[in-house]
Every structure is written in structure tokens, then in C-alpha cells.
């Protein structure tokens, strides 16, 4: 009898731990069902695919932001990188660069901006908030100078192939690609030395230094990951939308910060589950969609989105306090 009770208690504890660990998914599913009762369209396969595809941008940006947050930093330049990288690559394509090379360049720009941010933060000791806001301005300004504010349309077919070619039904090729990227990122964070060290550096950089972990290098790699994911988000958005512009992804900065925070990623570093960040990103995407399709007027949109995201963050904060 005692053994049976003990097994039952242990199973109950495991379930509680699981629910506690993946509560962001529960929040997402509950909100989806509740919203679906009000807006039945949410249960149609078309809407589900739309949310899945539209959420790729905020999810990739949120992953990038999460890597910066894991080491106790922040990267505000992600939205500028998401515009700058595809824009400059497309301009180089117009100047004669082959499409595959232009696509590789997108990621390379992300790497270069990440290294620059990382070096300035670690070697020059510039606070990451200041450094990355400055880079955000610089890159956005640069794109405005070279484009004179005009959007680039008429992107090559090969560039847009991923966003336009459907593999199954209405699901474009970018979805399996996106899933693969997320899986690789999760494996990197959880199962590689560098990924694990990002958590440790964010948790206690002095302790890491004392144990011989190259703290600066780990932080620089985190900024590179952030830059690469931002560039990838920019490419995916352009492949889907068929254009790039100077203010391409600006509206996604706040969702990209909110998503990891809702998912329980600590802004002080050292803590965060990338699997939950996916749920956080889609939760934010869902909120945006509900507000837009729910008939909230233009001037009220941002305010209502902000309030709902704030409530989600509050729920997360209370949950964490209760668990402590």
C-alpha cells in the first residue's frame, strides 16, 4: 500500500514538474482554445497554417534574443539586422552576385554584426543595451541611405522559393526548414559544451572565469547566434513576403523580447528553455492575430497587444514566485 502511494506521489510530482516546466505551452493552448470559441476561424486548417507560417519571424527573432539573454545581455539590434542583411544581399544580387551567394551573405552579415556587438560588449565593456541600440540605429540609418527609403520588390524566384513552394498542402518549404533550425538550436543549447556554458556564464560569469571558461568568447558566440537568427528571420520574412524594406521587422522587436520573457527566460541570464520560447513566440503571434482579427481599431492595436503581453508576463512572474 505504501509502495503504491509512493509511486502515485512520485508520478504526481513528475506530472507537476512537467506542467511547471512547460507551462508556456499550456498558456498557448488554453488561449488558442478560448480565442477559438470566440473566433471559430482559428480552428480552420487555413488559419492554423497561417499562424504557423507568420510565427516563424517572431520565433527566429525570439531565439536570437534568447541566446543574448542566456548570457545576461540583450540584443536590440536584431530587427535592424533582419532588415539590413537581406536588403544589402538583394542589392548585391542586383549588382550581379549569384542568388546562392547572396543568401549565404545574409547569414554572414548576421555573424559580422554579432561579432562586432560581442567584441564591444566584452572588450570595451559597453552595456549591451547601449551597444545594440546604437547598432540598430546605425544599420537602419545605413539601409535608409542606400535605399532612399524605398522597398525592394521583384526578388528572384530562387530567393523566394522557400516561402512560396509548398511541400504538403499549404505548408511552404520554409516550415520544415524552420523546424530543422529550431531543433539544431535546441540541441546546441542543451547538448553542446558551448551551449551549456552560455547558461553557466549567464548564471555566474566570475565563477566561470575562475573555472577557466573563456567568458568573453562565450558571450561573443551568443551575440553571433543572435545575429544569425536575426538575419535568418529577415531572410524568411523576405522569402515569404516577396520584398524587403528599411523598417522591415521593426514591429517585431517587442514581441521578440516578450516571447522569451513569457517563456521564463531570465533577463539576468543563466535560465531559459528554448522549447518554451517557441510557445512564447506563438503565444505572442496568436495575441497579435486575435487583436487584429478581433476587430480592434488601428489606433488601439498596439495598446491592446501590449496589455495582453503584459498580463502574460505577470502570470509568468507570479508562477515563478509561487514555485520558489
Amino acid at each position: 500500500m505504501e509502495l503504491a502511494n509512493s509511486k502515485s506521489n512520485s508520478r504526481g510530482k513528475s506530472i507537476r514538474n512537467f506542467l511547471g516546466e512547460y507551462y508556456t505551452w499550456i498558456m498557448f493552448i488554453v488561449l488558442y482554445i478560448v480565442a477559438g470559441i470566440i473566433v471559430p476561424n482559428l480552428f480552420t486548417s487555413t488559419t492554423m497554417v497561417t499562424i504557423l507560417v507568420q510565427g516563424t519571424t517572431v520565433c527566429l527573432l525570439a531565439f536570437g534574443m534568447t541566446f543574448a539573454m542566456l548570457v545576461g545581455e540583450i540584443d536590440m539590434s536584431i530587427v535592424a539586422v533582419a532588415a539590413f542583411s537581406p536588403m544589402i544581399s538583394i542589392m548585391l544580387w542586383e549588382a550581379g552576385l549569384p542568388v546562392p551567394l547572396a543568401m549565404i551573405l545574409v547569414l554572414l552579415f548576421g555573424v559580422v554584426v554579432g561579432i562586432f556587438n560581442g567584441l564591444m560588449v566584452t572588450k570595451m565593456k559597453i552595456p549591451s543595451l547601449i551597444q545594440t541600440v546604437a547598432v540598430w540605429w546605425m544599420l537602419s540609418g545605413f539601409v535608409l541611405i542606400v535605399t532612399k527609403g524605398a522597398a525592394k520588390t521583384g526578388l528572384p524566384d530562387a530567393w523566394m522559393f522557400m516561402g512560396r513552394f509548398n511541400v504538403i498542402g499549404r505548408i511552404p518549404l520554409l516550415i520544415p526548414f524552420f523546424v530543422l533550425v529550431l531543433i539544431l538550436a535546441i540541441i546546441f543549447a542543451r547538448r553542446t559544451v558551448t551551449g551549456r556554458r552560455m547558461y553557466l556564464v549567464g548564471g555566474n560569469a566570475d565563477a566561470c572565469a575562475a573555472m577557466g571558461i573563456p567568458v568573453d568568447r562565450i558571450k561573443i558566440i551568443a551575440f553571433v547566434m543572435s545575429g544569425v537568427f536575426a538575419a535568418l528571420a529577415g531572410y524568411v520574412l523576405s522569402a515569404r513576403m516577396g520584398f524587403v524594406s528599411a523598417r522591415f521587422a521593426v514591429e517585431w522587436l517587442m514581441p521578440a523580447i516578450a516571447a522569451p520573457v513569457i517563456a521564463g527566460v531570465s533577463m539576468n541570464g543563466g535560465k531559459g528553455n528554448l522549447i518554451n520560447v517557441i510557445a512564447g513566440a506563438y503565444l505572442v503571434q496568436l495575441i497579435v492575430m486575435i487583436v487584429r482579427t478581433g476587430g480592434v481599431g488601428g489606433y488601439y492595436t498596439d495598446f491592446v497587444q501590449g496589455v495582453i503581453v503584459f498580463i502574460a508576463i505577470l502570470i509568468n512572474t507570479f508562477r515563478e514566485r509561487l514555485s520558489q
Partner: peptide
Amino acid sequence: HQFLELVDMATAWENFFMGRE
């Protein structure tokens, strides 16, 4: 060290193999 160079948020095994994974 005097002030325990451990990472509070990390698990025991992660701390134990810190820097020599």
C-alpha cells in the same frame, strides 16, 4: 574560493564539470 564559485541556477553535475565537460 572563499565565496564558493558555483553557479546557483545550474545543477550539481553541471557545476561539478564546469570548464572540463
